[in-house]
Design a protein around this nucleic acid. Structure first.
Lengths: 121, 121
DNA sequence: CATAGTGGTTCCTCACATGTAACCAAGTCT
DNA sequence: AGACTTGGTTACATGTGAGGAACCACTATG
């Protein structure tokens, strides 16, 4: 509750994680990195995210300067989202996490099974 | 809600993030990486985490094979926690995230201020 | 005329994460 | 005898994340 001053790195990492932790943000970024540009409903359909959460997530990402929003005032409206340069650069550390996950997937699963088996005895 | 099969990477990344996302896990790992070995209450004091959450977090980390728990049945009890090899390797992608955060900290802050300023007009 | 599609916003609800406080056993210190 | 320490667990309260559904404006289409 008190003492954030123990570890400056922790504060920093905590901030990124609060951005990464909601997980929709990361999935949106991955989707945009893959397709380049996507419309609101394209994102919604491809991620299986609710309209509400997508709206909130995109707003935050735009505010943080990771995503750029382009609104075409046509009818029906057309809004396109794409990654900014900073958004692109964010993919590197994220894919590092993804790779680690891939490499250690089996070991984690094995550890869990061993743990669960040991506990129930 | 439906369709997890859209993107295999997303499933994977999602799993890591659900582990990383609770934010205490990562802080525990960082603390252990720094000090090598820590007792329960040492962790508690150095992180400012509640006893309950530390207990839950450590249990999860141990189950996933990232942290090793050593119990000395003395009185009063003494329990030591340290990173496993897999736990050590997890630091790399995490510090990659931390470095990204450090490098882009100012740009994000600037983007937020610009966004907030534009909105309130 | 009625319905669908687009990009949102708002209200209601519910589950889950997290914190607080109390309790435990066994021994040591005052 | 009573308080303190260590490592937890459990019950209770609370806030927030997240989903669902309804609504909006405007047009094209059936």
């Amino acid at each position: 509750m008190l003492d954030n001053n123990r570890c400056p790195d922790c504060t920093r990492i905590n901030e990124v994680l609060s951005r990464v932790g909601d997980r929709w943000s990361v999935l949106v970024i991955i989707a945009l990195a893959r397709h380049g540009t996507l419309r609101f409903n394209e994102l919604k359909r491809s991620l299986g995210i609710s309209q509400r959460m997508l709206s909130l997530t995109l707003k935050e990402l735009e505010r943080d300067g990771l995503v750029k929003r382009t609104h075409h005032p046509t009818i029906p409206p057309k809004v396109e989202y794409t990654l900014t340069e900073m958004g692109q650069s964010f993919r590197e550390p994220v894919s590092a996490l993804g790779n680690w996950a891939l490499e250690n997937q089996k070991e984690i699963e094995a550890a869990r099974q061993a743990y669960d088996k040991a506990v129930e005895e």
